[in-house]
Design a protein around this nucleic acid. Structure first.
Length: 472
RNA sequence: GUCCCCAUCGUCUAGAGGCCCAGGACACUACCCUUUCACGGUAGGUACCGGGGUUCGAAUCCCCGUGGGGACGCCA
């Protein structure tokens, strides 16, 4: 049985790169009817926060990436880690090191200035025939893993292919801090082992940890899982993603009006491909997803393509659902959504024209708050020629059935009677009703409003006669 | 500095020696549709980092260079 895991550290929100890692791990488990485990790596007591844990859980839920097991918290598994460390100490695969952080820093400084790779020099590492220093009083020791000194560690990365690292490149890493708490590389190993993880799908930045983890796994006599290292996601500008690049948090995309299915689809296609397929549901994604088609190179995030996908999903989304998503956005702006112009009808009229829910809210807003058309737009469209036509139209409005077809017919009749072209009437109507020059078809637009709202908004035209006459 | 990874249109990518003087998508341009603007439809331009090999034949394999990235923590 295939078992994958997503193991974020709760030091911040769920960012877009983490979300993709989670998506791939989740999909891989789904694809193979396996198990997807969520594990919170909170061993850094200083930087981990409950708020961050919540933020990650919220992000996962918004995306719909549900886990089958967990969430497990590493802080709750401390006794287990300590027991394994004791075993390793007893077995000789780990040892106590009394070097202080200051001493270490000095050593690293020397090495760096000498052009060497900074690393622990093994002064407390037991060797046959070697006399160890006397442990200094008052220095709490750390525990280090006794890494093999020779040979190479190699694994066939499921994304990058075979990777080999010489053990001589690896130093003896700390697995327990001076205060006794275990460190990341150690907890990961124990957890992946005991949780039976078969496929470790994670970010590129862990490639360098992998040989160390494999060595510990071997020292423990554990089965080594398969690894798949995903390349990083770069910002829109090709730079590494950071707070400066705007929407790095997944929830930011929610705030910005993106649908989770669009973000998921976008992320699924970023660094992975299934031929020329661009648009796919999560169901299809789970059926298709494999590790063979993951690109080993870094990918640049492209907001425009995300916008395109979001527009696509908006077009197809259920109108009632979109209305429930738009309503809180309007209320957050202080717009009272009333029954009269139906939000569902408004959304239905506009969902094919926007890229985000926020744009939809922008447009919907004008239906609840009377616009104040700009003077230049009034002057441009409420021409002396258009005004009598408009007046004629308005006068007849109360006499027709209030529906799209009837309104459309009336528009055509009036235009024809005055010997003018359609836009002569359509444009003034748009401007007066919404303050905008670009709107859906005016007949459909008008039908969404109650008649009295239409009459009220069109009445503004009378004021336009004043500046118009002044101009002449 | 040392080690590791990466390299096809502006961007995401297809491509696992001949199907490729390189295909799709976003973006861009033009045209069509049209009650404006979108949507939609049609058409178009733009790419195999450089140099050596291997081979009858290389975007695909190998080497070197160059450029990018990652790591070198008692962070994860």
């Amino acid at each position: 049985m295939i078992r994958t895991r997503f193991a974020p550290s709760p030091t911040g929100f769920l960012h877009i790169g983490g979300a993709r890692t989670a998506l791939f791990s989740w999909a891989y488990a789904r694809r193979h009817s396996g198990c997807f485990v969520l594990r919170i790596e909170d061993t850094d007591l200083v930087r981990s926060t409950p708020e961050a844990v919540q933020a990650i859980l919220d992000g996962m839920r918004w995306l719909g990436l549900s886990h089958d097991e967990g969430p497990f918290y590493q802080t709750q598994r401390m006794p287990r880690y300590r027991a394994v460390i004791e075993d390793m100490l007893a077995a000789g695969s780990a040892y106590r090191c009394y070097m202080t952080p200051d001493e270490l820093e000095r050593l690293r400084e020397e090495q760096r200035s000498g052009g060497l790779k900074p690393r622990y020099d093994g002064r407390w590492r037991p060797e046959p025939g070697k006399t160890l220093p006397i442990p200094p009083a008052g220095v709490p020791p750390v525990v280090r893993f006794r890494n093999p000194a020779t040979g190479v560690v190699a694994w066939d990365d499921l994304v990058k292919g075979r990777i080999e690292i010489a053990n001589s490149e690896l130093d003896d890493l700390v697995i327990a801090r001076a205060d006794g708490t275990p460190t990341y590389n150690f907890c990961v190993v124990v957890d992946d082992w005991e949780m039976g993880i078969t496929h470790v799908i994670r970010g590129d930045d862990h490639v360098n940890n992998t040989p160390r983890q494999i060595n510990i796994l071997r020292a423990l006599g554990a089965q080594v899982p398969l690894y798949a290292h995903l390349s990083m996601i770069l910002g829109d500008d090709g730079q590494k993603l950071s707070k400066r690049h705007g929407a790095v948090s997944v929830m930011q995309y929610d705030d910005d009006g993106y649908l989770p299915e669009a973000v998921l689809n976008y992320l699924g296609r970023l660094g992975w491909s299934h031929g020329d397929d661009e648009i796919f549901s999560m169901q299809q994604f789970c059926a298709w997803f494999d590790l063979d088609h993951i690109t080993p190179s870094a990918a640049q995030f492209n907001s425009e393509k995300l916008n395109w996908l979001n527009a696509h999903y908006l077009k197809r989304a259920d109108t009632a659902r979109l209305a429930t998503l738009v309503q809180p956005r309007l209320e957050a702006r202080g717009v009272t959504v009333t029954a009269a112009p139906s939000l569902v009808a408004i959304v239905d009229l506009h969902k094919e024209r926007v890229a985000t829910l926020n744009e939809l809210a922008d447009l919907a807003q004008t239906f609840y708050i009377d616009p104040r058309p700009k003077a230049e737009l009034m002057a441009k469209h409420l021409t002396p020629e258009a005004l009598p036509l408009l007046a004629d139209f308005v006068a007849r409005l109360p006499d027709i059935p209030w529906e799209v077809a009837a309104i459309g017919t009336l528009i055509k009749e009036c235009v024809t009677r005055h010997g003018l072209k359609m836009p002569r009437l359509a444009m003034p109507l748009r401007v007066l009703l919404t303050g905008l020059e670009q709107t859906p078809a005016v007949d459909a637009l008008m039908a969404v409003f109650p008649l009295e709202t239409v009459l009220r908004r069109l009445a503004v035209a009378r004021e336009a006669t004043l500046p118009q006459s002044v101009l002449r």
